[in-house]
Every structure is written in C-alpha cells, then in structure tokens.
Design a protein around this nucleic acid. Sequence first.
DNA 1: AGGTCGACCTGGCAGC
DNA 2: TGCTGCCAGGTCGACC
Length: 268
Amino acid sequence: MPELPEVETIRRDLQKRVLNKKIRRVNIIDSVILRSSPAEFKKVLVGATIRAVDRRGKALLITLNNGYVLAVQLMMTGQLITDNSIDRHTRLEIVFSDGNVLLYKDQRRFGQLRVVKSLNEFKHLQDLGPEPLEKDFNPVYIAAYIKYRKRPIKTLLLDHTFVAGIGNIYACEILYRARISPLRPACRISKSEAAEIHEQSRVVLKEAIRHRGSSMRNYRDAAGKKGGFKKLIQVYAREGEACLHCDGPVKRIVQAGRSTFYCPLCQK
DNA sequence: AGGTCGACCTGGCAGC
DNA sequence: TGCTGCCAGGTCGACC
C-alpha cells in the first residue's frame, strides 16, 4: 500500500493526535501481524507514553517513554486510524488514558508490528539506503551507485538498499517525468540524467506529501481519509491511455514481477 | 552480485 | 448469480 509520502502523511497525523498520550489498554485482535510475542508486546505498550513518531523509509517508528520503539510496517494494506471505527479488518486496538483510540487495520494481514529495545534489533532498518529527500541522496551518490550496475533503473529505484521509501507508483512517476526508460540499464545513465532522477524524485515525492499521498485502493490517512495525489499521477495504472506529452499509448510491462507503466516514445 | 520467483493474505473486478 | 483468473502500494528468503 503506502509508499513514503503516504507513510509521512500518517506520521504527521499521528504526531498531532497521539503524541504524549499514555496507553491504557492494548487489544490484540489478530496476532498474525505481530513480530514480537503478544505478551511482550502488551507488556511494553501498556502504561507507556508516546514520546515521538518518526519515519524511516516506509517504516513508522513510535518511540515510548520506557525506551522501547514500536515499529510499524504497513506493507500493502495496513492503516493506522485514530478513531474507534472497529471493523472486520481491525487487527489491533490501542486505547489511551484519555479515551482516544488508535486502530491498526489491515485487509491482507501483510503488515508487521514489533516492539524493540534498540533499533539495531530491527534488521530492515540496517539495510536501508538514504532517505530520498535528505542530502545524502544526491546526484553524486546516484552516479557512483549506478556506475557498474547493469540492472534496469526501475528495479533499482525499488531497491530500498539504494534509496528508501520509493515504491512502485513513485518509481514509475519519477522515471516518466525524467523521460528515462524503466528498462535502461542503470550503468547507461549519464551524470546529467542521474541529476534529473534526483530532481524528479524530490519533485514527485514532495508534491505527493503536499497532497497527503495517493489514493489507490486501500490507502487512508490517520483520520481515515483518502489522499489527493491520485489525480496528479501521470503514468501509473494508465495502460492504453494517452501519454500526456506525446499522445501515444502508455504501455504496461512486468519487471521483477511488478507492473511498470511508461511511455515508450517519451522515455528513452 | 543480480535476477527471478514464490510466499505471505484478502478482496475487487472482468470475463464467461 | 457464480465461477475462475488476474491484479494489487511491500518485503523476505530460496534458488539459479
């Protein structure tokens, strides 16, 4: 489900809604989503106060006053909703001492929640590359990384060891706006094109955050509302429709088992 | 080191 | 109406 802009939107919402709240009760409805034992999970959360809500890549990191961190990966269909709209997809209910509620919903149950004493225990984080909107993701880094790599640039953008947080929608959008074919071997991308990938990554992700994320299918912000970026998507899921630049048909191909949408005429 | 694939799951939708 | 097959925003591990 959510990529960086969606997770960042949820993070900002949660910061407004649950910061400094004390957890009174935890109701584990479906323990499949837990990567800590239910007993430890409850023991760590109940009585703790939320001190910070951070994000790394697509992972939410909720720091507690007891030193533990609640790490949440929403995967494809996870949602964190700050109301009490419990339904059949609700897997976890957190009740605060002021009576407010935070729900974890997940249609497909791919999401993962864990409590860790140190972020080193969360291996996923150790493997992550730079944040795409931070300084260490820059044209020099990109050019050096891709220099000897033959894999298609699209699959590289999806590789979180190269850059964190970019998923299938935004990888397609970035390459479309940079006018670079998703099939191009990374090592055949020039320095100026690497700079363009960097620039368009910033443009697309910032724009998406400004519009509170995309609304494909299941994405909801913490208030349960859809994002507004969908109408700004230029190429994703537009197979057969006219390219906004040349009017030619948008093509769908499969790379590494994932759909890629692009314009074969505009993207070289 | 790259790559592909299947697994993890549920549900919406198109086509017959 | 109901069946089948395909598709879906992520990540990991097995395998070549």
